[in-house]
Amino acid sequence: MFHDFINLLYPKLCCSCETTLNTNENILCTSCLHELPIADHHLEKDNPVEKIFYGRIPVENATSLLLFEKKGMVQKLIHNLKYRGHKEVGPFLGAWLGSELKELSAWQEITVVVPVPLHRKKLRIRGFNQVAGFGQEIAKSLEVPYRDDLLLKITATKTQTIKKRLARWGTIDETFIIHNSSSLENAHVLLVDDLVTTGATLEACAQKLLKIPNLRISIATMAVTH
């Protein structure tokens, strides 16, 4: 009764259409949940996410859970996560994807989950890394550690345009550093992020990580541009 009273005063809203959620609904209403554009690229060989990195970095596996379109449901979902404080979106998507990855033998070789890091200034402004809950839930499903203290961002970049320009000139390599690299020797790292578009940021992170002896990389994101 107490929870019902709280929900009456502060109703939980769908993170997509903003209608009031029923007691048996979580994050998304049933209608939006059924309309989500699901990618499930981990169920495909030579999938679109893997192809983004062909000839750029060696990737063991790559997947995205959802398809991203401008002004679409997924954009609103990620926007609510990043800018409106709906932290529950990350764990929701991470638990969903993690439950599927743990059933696939190729993904059972992962030894550690590492998020794409935020620069400390952006982290201070936003208050959290939007990828954290997503990565933590995947790590829990795969029964491996989640480590956000190994890959660090030391140079702030503002836009995708700037990121592409940095990548073109090769200076994006100076954006990230590895802390305690010896702990990642012989590891199979699952690098996680919210959205993959050009792949420049994930590529820069992977290139830095791949300097560590015998390290392998897989990639998982909430969404990929469609």
Results as ranks from 00 to 15, higher is better:
residue 2 F to V: 11
residue 2 F to R: 14
residue 6 I to W: 08
residue 10 Y to N: 09
residue 11 P to K: 05
residue 12 K to V: 01
residue 15 C to H: 05
residue 19 T to L: 12
residue 19 T to G: 13
residue 19 T to N: 13
residue 22 N to P: 06
residue 31 S to T: 15
residue 32 C to G: 01
residue 33 L to R: 06
residue 34 H to I: 04
residue 36 L to Q: 03
residue 39 A to F: 06
residue 41 H to S: 08
residue 52 I to A: 07
residue 54 Y to V: 03
residue 55 G to T: 04
residue 58 P to K: 07
residue 59 V to P: 02
residue 61 N to L: 03
residue 62 A to R: 03
residue 66 L to S: 00
residue 68 F to G: 02
residue 69 E to I: 00
residue 73 M to K: 12
residue 78 I to S: 02
residue 78 I to K: 05
residue 79 H to G: 07
residue 83 Y to A: 02
residue 85 G to A: 07
residue 91 P to E: 06
residue 93 L to T: 02
residue 93 L to C: 11
residue 100 E to S: 12
residue 103 E to Y: 03
residue 104 L to G: 05
residue 107 W to K: 01
residue 107 W to T: 09
residue 112 V to N: 10
residue 116 V to I: 07
residue 118 L to H: 08
residue 120 R to N: 13
residue 129 N to E: 09
residue 132 A to F: 14
residue 132 A to D: 15
residue 134 F to V: 00
residue 137 E to D: 07
residue 137 E to L: 08
residue 141 S to D: 08
residue 142 L to I: 11
residue 143 E to M: 15
residue 150 L to N: 03
residue 153 K to M: 01
residue 154 I to D: 00
residue 160 Q to K: 13
residue 162 I to D: 15
residue 164 K to S: 12
residue 165 R to G: 11
residue 165 R to T: 11
residue 167 A to V: 10
residue 168 R to N: 13
residue 169 W to V: 14
residue 171 T to L: 15
residue 175 T to C: 09
residue 177 I to Y: 12
residue 177 I to K: 02
residue 181 S to H: 11
residue 184 L to I: 02
residue 186 N to S: 15
residue 188 H to W: 11
residue 193 D to E: 09
residue 197 T to Q: 09
residue 197 T to W: 11
residue 199 G to N: 03
residue 202 L to Y: 04
residue 208 K to W: 03
residue 215 L to P: 09
residue 221 T to Q: 01
residue 226 H to C: 04
